[in-house]
Structure formats: structure tokens, C-alpha cells
Design a protein around this nucleic acid. Structure first.
Lengths: 199, 199
DNA sequence: TCATCTATGTAGTCAATGACAACATTTTGC
DNA sequence: GCAAAATGTTGTCATTGACTACATAGATGA
């Protein structure tokens, strides 16, 4: 046999599959993702991926979960780097969310797509909750600092998160028309904050 | 031949395909939609649908466009039936949006999915814009009545629309946790309106 | 050390699907 | 009436996800 012999075991197939899958996802959309194509690109047989992902949906779930973890990390980083005032942190969170959405349009759609396997959904839901928890923390801090009025922090954070999420998805879908994304995000953050302000 | 002879031409294949497609869409998700299965259900050959839809995506685009039209109609109806005050109309719009989202989860995901055919996207985008225009109208009316402060009505409406959209998609994806949807919608509408209020 | 158990990969197969081509039957419009 | 456009049918193909049986490597432990 030739010198360029490949070892029988790939060594990091799972990682490679996930990496190429995400790249393909953003390029061709979720419909352009084929297990067999991924296998070809990784230089393994067409059935090899099944040893790492029960089925196609399991791969998508893994991508989504990874997406949630990175989204949460990005949001946390943005909040930590922002000015140490609730108002600024709130805005930073919003901008970071939209930035992530624009950088990972297809991934975001996958993350919030409702078609999650009933079984694997647990870890996925947990990963999603973490991003929300971050928002709750900011709201609670703002209330503690008396920057905004009282009220159920979880509920307030939920509405805030939904607002950011809405802008992010519209932006990712190119539905913000010609409006500059940053301006829209700032406007939303400002308006929302004003609505929460202490009377 | 038997008496139960079917005419060579179906007569309303396009309508039937769209109707069954939407029903299947909500039941099995977009991945569960198969042109061949639809053809079987309609009692025609597997290639018949291609005479009405260039490809699978064209069918999905048609569904999405129909969804936007009905969403706009539902929003318009809700606004018309609400108390004749901008505040009430605003809230009615929000609730109607979320109600539509919960009643057509998969359809909504399809409508806002970014994978629209470049060509057919024109009519689709127009249909989507109509829903937004409705929101602009409400905002402009509120400004005219001096109920909210000044500002670019389109921009304000865009942010409002995004907020409603965010709640709707989170609700449709079951990500509102245990929070009662109506309460969240009301809270969002109230907070946003307060943020817009005249100083 | 070596036997075996488990993880990982391969080859082969199957039914379903979307797309396309060639052809048939109506319907429409001139 | 007749030509052309609509609408349907049959046949075919490559791709795909899923499954089965089997091969090989690496890990575990007596």
C-alpha cells in the first residue's frame, strides 16, 4: 500500500464532522447538510457518521447546543466588558445578541427551530436557558441599584430577551429593510429601558 | 372502465396541494413535507405537482406568502376590532401576532426562514412588508393623537414589530417556560408603550 | 501478555425523494 | 376546428438517511 496510508480510525471524526457541518450550514443552509457529504469531506465511509450521531437530527441538535453555549459565552463577554452600569450592560447584551445572529444566521434559526428531538432536548433546553439567565441577572442588578422599577425580574428579563431575539431574527432574515441594524438595536434598548425606568 | 372514473385533469390541484401541504406542515414540520406524498394524497401522479410548483422550495414559498397574507389580515382585523385608541390597538396587534404564531408555529418559522428563492422572494417580501406597514400606521396615528412622542414612525414601528415577533417566536418555540403567554405579551406591550410615551 | 470487550470504521443494501425527460390528454384561444 | 398552452402520466436517475453485517483498532483487566 502507499505511504499516505490513512489509519483505520480517524481520531477526531466527531469534531471534524461538527466543524464542517457548521461551515456548510452557514453556506448552504440546513437543507444543504448531508451526512454522506460530510463523510466524504472527512474522508470516511458513508456510515461512519452514524457512530457519532444517531441520525441527522442528532447532528443538528449538537450544532444547536454548541450554538447556545457560544451565544451565552458571547453575551457574557459583552456584559463583562461593558461599562459597569446596568444601562450599559443592557445595551451591550442587545448588541452582542444581534451581532451573534448576523454572524450565525442559519445556526440561530436551527437553535430556535422547534424541531428538537424529544430526548436530546434536555441538554439543548438547558443551554438555551443559560442565555436567558444572564439577562435575568442584569435586570436583577439594575433593580438592586434602583436603576429600574420593581417587578418580577424573570418576567422582565423574558420580555427583554424576546425583544432582542426579535430584532436579531429579523436582522438575520434581512427584514430590517435598509435600517442600520445598530441604530435599531440602540433604539429598542433605549425604548425598553425607558419603559422600565422608575416612575 | 369503471364508473368511478376520475377526470384526467384534477381541476384544483394547486389549491388541494397547498391545503394539504399546510396541514402536513403543522403536523410533521417542514421536513415531513414531501411532494410525492402530497401527490399521493391528492390522487395524482408523482410528477403532477411539478406543473404547479417548479420545485419543493416554490411550494414552501407559496405557503409562506399565503401565511404573510393571512397574518396581515389577522392583524388588521384585530386592530379594527380593538377600542379606537392607539394604546389599545397597539396591544391588540401584539396579541394577534402571538395568537397567529401559536396557531401556525411551523408556518411562521417558514415565513421568516431566510431560505427564500431569490426570484420568488419579491412577492414574499411584499407580503411581509404589508404586516409591518400596519404597525407603522398605528404608530403614526398614536403620534398624531399625541399619545406618544415624536420620532421616525417607521423606525419605531420596526422596533415594536420586532418585539412582538420575538415574543411570538419564543412562544411558538415553547421557550417562554411556564410564563403565561398573555401576561408576557401584555407586559411587553405596556413596557414598550411606556418607553414611547411623551415626556 | 494476551484475551476480550468496546469503540470506531467499512461495505452493502433499501426505500423514499426531488428532479428531469418524454409522452398523453384536455382546454383555450385564434 | 385547429394549433398551442395547460395539465397529467410514466419512466428514470442520483442522492440521501437508515439499517445490517462485518472488520479493525484500542482499552481493560486477569
Amino acid at each position: 500500500m502507499s505511504a499516505a496510508e490513512q489509519p483505520y480510525h480517524h481520531g477526531s471524526l466527531r469534531q471534524v464532522l461538527l466543524a464542517r457541518a457548521e461551515s456548510t450550514l452557514e453556506k448552504d443552509g440546513v437543507d444543504g447538510l448531508s451526512l454522506r457529504q460530510l463523510a466524504r469531506e472527512a474522508g470516511v465511509s458513508h456510515a461512519a457518521p452514524s457512530k457519532h450521531f444517531r441520525d441527522r437530527q442528532a447532528l443538528l441538535d449538537a450544532l444547536a447546543e454548541s450554538g447556545f453555549r457560544r451565544l451565552t459565552a458571547a453575551l457574557g463577554r459583552a456584559v463583562d466588558e461593558a461599562e459597569p452600569h446596568a444601562r450599559a450592560r443592557f445595551a451591550a447584551l442587545a448588541h452582542a445578541y444581534v451581532t451573534f445572529a448576523l454572524d450565525h444566521r442559519e445556526l440561530l434559526a436551527l437553535m430556535y427551530g422547534s424541531k428538537h428531538a424529544p430526548g436530546a432536548a434536555a441538554e439543548l433546553v438547558d443551554a438555551g436557558r443559560a442565555a436567558m439567565d444572564l439577562t435575568v441577572r442584569i435586570v436583577a442588578e439594575a433593580q438592586a441599584a434602583d436603576e429600574i422599577g420593581p417587578g418580577d425580574a424573570s418576567r422582565i428579563a423574558l420580555v427583554a430577551f424576546a425583544t432582542f431575539h426579535g430584532i436579531a431574527t429579523l436582522a438575520a432574515g434581512g427584514m430590517l429593510e435598509d435600517a442600520p441594524v445598530d441604530e435599531v438595536v440602540t433604539a429598542a434598548s433605549d425604548t425598553f429601558w425607558r419603559g422600565l425606568a422608575r416612575a
